[in-house]
Write a protein that binds this DNA or RNA. Structure first.
Lengths: 345, 345
DNA sequence: TTGAAAGCGCTACCAT
DNA sequence: ATGGTAGCGCTTTCAA
């Protein structure tokens, strides 16, 4: 057993960052008291005079609590890990991410984005699990799969929430039903009397998770109509490719076009116009995502707008799930779409 | 002193995630040995048979090391914290971020993005410092200032690297000299005989950190020439604002325009054309950042392209700095610009 | 009202 | 070749 002096440990090396022990020493109290004061634990159990001394000492030393040590002791890190592949960390995502960060912070969580690991499945799950987050939210991330979920659960990460075109087995799901997008676009084109509909699918493989369902939705839309056919058009986001595509497109007799998003639509419109086609007279074009570029081009793009569940609601959902880690997987629909009719279709 | 049995602690609650102690128990060895084996410490000091048993046990239990505990013990978290305000987490940034993540991972670090905290200066510094990262890289983040750096250093975060238009005192700096951009644009417009140059500055306050230096560079370019003047044009990224701006622009007698970036340039070109001006005949336009939209417009946009230091080099730099935490602040230039001449100027 | 001490999971030093 | 054990910084129970 130690005797005496324990409340006054020797000062630490000069350059070392101050710990709660240092604060205690300077304030002339125990580490326990420091903890009580700085965390406002147990209302008035510490006298106001002492509280003031402790806070002064902390300020004077520039003390910053050590979240790692706190997490170890508490058994929970307070971290919500967001995972997202490179492509997703894009413009649409930027503000949503900032909002989510904010909303989670208000609920006492720390949102942290962990970019592409280079691994997939169980291996990716292990990388995430090492940090022992309270929850993992994977955004459109196809490296999150059933194995990854299993690893996470086994490592004590109680909440795994997948957000993407397809739900991940075993995890909670925010489903963004991308099929709606294609369906709605085709509905509009068909109603305008178009019969041979091209659907532009991006060559970028990392977008297939979105592109395939949008195509599938378009095909579903075509089947619901008589005499409407859908032709898949693979296209890279590149002017040369677009020029070649426009030629081939004319031969296919396409009179209506649904592009993966407004960027691809813009590229296609340009190429069609350069090849002598008129938009929308010869080919009607519908884009998606309501990007700025669609309003700057002439003709202005008709597009399928996406309304996702607001970040604040997602934060509340996460907060609730973290509170009940063993609840059975829930599925929430987070996508509503609407057509923005402009000039191109 | 404990006696006996210490190598065989009692099993833990069934649902609890396995610890190295559990692995040790299953493999019939001590926790120390588990640590040696799983971290490949000290070459052959553990027999191959034992190593195999340990690895089997770990696999069977689904053991994932606890990075938090490891960090506490090691005194370093292995984390490189990236901070960025909402606007920056944009398209240009996406791939750079993914690359950096990758490059840092290869060097044994974990890159983690910590979005806008809602706080600034010392308070923001405290939020970051809590996580005890080995380094903080702030990207175009104006909430990182001298006070934040001081807090971080005091909390033992040895490496603070700022990347933005202006260096942060006390921290290492990656300077992206945005003035070059404006200078180069004005040089081109003046050489083409334009004399009254508008410079479009975005109304979005969060972009001012870039916009002001670009404007300053343009002014510097004008001073270097006779009879060339620069007129600041504030503009919001909005069609209505652009229409009003185009009218006022005609009155000002502007015959050359440098826009903050290609998006603003596109908006301006559109508005000018709609108001009856010809581009480039009446007004020559130069954009910046070489965005896709610049190639889709007619006329195609002349733009100032940016070449940043590749992520791999930034990762190597960070790695070196983490190895020598007390080195004096270094400054590195990471921006090269080049003019891409197309049709608009 | 305050303090002592245990212990979160891990690694590294020193024994054996 | 392997094991005991101290201790990273913190919170929290129990004791005073």
């Amino acid at each position: 057993m130690m005797t005496g002096m324990a409340a006054t440990p020797s000062p630490r090396a000069a350059g070392a960052p101050p710990t709660s022990g240092d604060v205690a020493r300077v304030a002339g109290v125990s580490r326990a008291t420091v903890s009580y004061v700085l965390n406002n634990t147990e209302g008035g159990r510490v006298s106001e005079a002492t509280r003031e001394r402790v806070r002064d000492a902390a300020r004077q030393l520039g003390y910053v609590p050590h979240a790692v040590a706190r997490a170890l002791r508490a058994g929970r890190s307070g971290i919500v890990l967001l995972t997202a592949p490179a492509v997703t960390v894009g413009p649409l995502f930027a503000h949503a991410y900032a909002d989510l960060q904010q909303a989670l912070a208000e609920l006492g969580h720390t949102a942290v984005l962990y970019g592409p690991t280079g691994a997939r499945g169980a291996e990716a799950g292990r990388r995430w699990a090492e940090l022992r987050p309270d929850a993992v939210l994977s955004l459109m991330d196809d490296s999150m799969d059933e194995d990854a979920v299993a690893v996470l659960h086994k490592a004590g990460v109680g909440v795994v929430l997948g957000c993407g075109p397809v739900p991940v087995p075993g995890a909670h799901a925010l489903v963004a039903d991308q099929e709606q997008v294609g369906f709605r676009a085709v509905e509009h084109l068909a109603a305008a009397g178009r019969r041979t509909l091209g659907v532009i699918v991006p060559a970028d493989a990392s977008l297939l998770g979105f592109a395939e369902p949008r195509l599938a939705g378009a095909e579903k839309g075509a089947r619901a109509r008589d005499a409407v056919t859908v032709v898949r058009q693979d296209l890279a986001l590149d002017e040369g490719a677009a020029t070649r595509w426009a030629r081939q497109c004319a031969e296919a007799g396409i009179d209506g076009l649904f592009a993966y998003n407004d960027e691809y639509a813009a590229l296609a419109v340009r190429a069609l116009q350069d090849s002598g086609k008129r938009v929308p007279e010869d080919v009607a074009v519908v884009g998606a995502d309501d990007l700025l570029i669609g309003r700057l081009l002439r003709p202005r793009l008709t597009t399928v707008r996406m309304d996702y569940m607001p970040s604040r609601e997602i934060a509340r959902l996460l907060n609730r799930l973290i509170g009940t880690p063993d609840a059975p997987p829930e599925t929430h629909d987070i996508l509503r779409t609407g057509l923005v009719v402009r000039e191109s279709a």
